[in-house]
Amino acid sequence: MAITFKSLSYIYDKGTPFAHVALDKIDLSLEEGKVTALIGETGSGKSTLVEHLNALLLPSEGELEILDYKMVAGHKTKGLKMLRKKVGLVFQFSEYQLFEETILKDVAFGPMNFGVTPEEAQKKAVKALKLVGISEDLFNNSPLDLSGGQKRRVAIAGILAIEPDIIVLDEPTAGLDPKGAQDIISLFMKINRQYGKTIIIVSHDNDMVYNYADEVVLMSKGHVVTKKETVEFFDDDALLDEYGILRPQIVMFKKMLKDIGFKLKGENRTLEDLSKTIVKEVRR
């Protein structure tokens, strides 16, 4: 297991009258090499949970194992800096964090911070920028002159240049236009499929989750409600209704077809597969 939460709690302002339990005894294991989607309404604890993954927050109670690292509440953990190299965290609206005078410098900042030489950092930055599709003639421009979608890609390149094993993304497509959002998602699928990186995405976009995630973790009020394989998760009508989860459009359409009498054998995860199944049943 890449990541294991054991009875982990996080309490903001612990020991003060404002104490607020954001995570309540979380038990959760996430495997290496998978794309996991973390969903749940605003305030359910998703962001607090992911901030533990590169030790921005440390457990108030319980423990957390990530790769070879173990964080136990009340104990000092050594080597957190190296953990932060292995787990890259892309924040919401990460483009607001660009600050260097050129795109190349901004992306090279991460690897330099982890002690590689300026030449090596530059090499890694160039590689990461190419991966996210920023063309070379822009490298010496200010990152602030880019469009929103391009800025987001530069910010992501800044994390990729550190070459982490686990990449955590908090709402990576929020605020982008449809094409910009699709480009970002395709990029992460490529990174997962080609380089075998573990990817954890916090998202409110259930259509995207359905299309790309291997498994779904649902959070509510500081608890993990369930972890399930994606198709199975969105087939669980009782669960979706209890937690008021918006169905992906294709799931909604499948439900309409089943309600009228279609059998729809098989998984039918894509529109292409679903159309084939419909045609088969219509013509039988």
């Binding site: 359409f253 309409m256 077809l257 009228i260 279609f262 292409e272 159309s275 084939k276 045609v279």
Partner: peptide, 30 residues
């Protein structure tokens, strides 16, 4: 519109533009 297109690719043309109409039409064909 995506559904309509995907069905057309499989050789099935539906007239409706909304999902509800399509579902009814498909069931009629069935």
């Amino acid at each position: 519109a995506l559904v309509k297109e995907a069905l057309k690719k499989e050789g099935l043309k539906v007239k409706s533009d909304d999902l509800e109409g399509m579902v009814k039409e498909l069931w009629q064909l069935h």
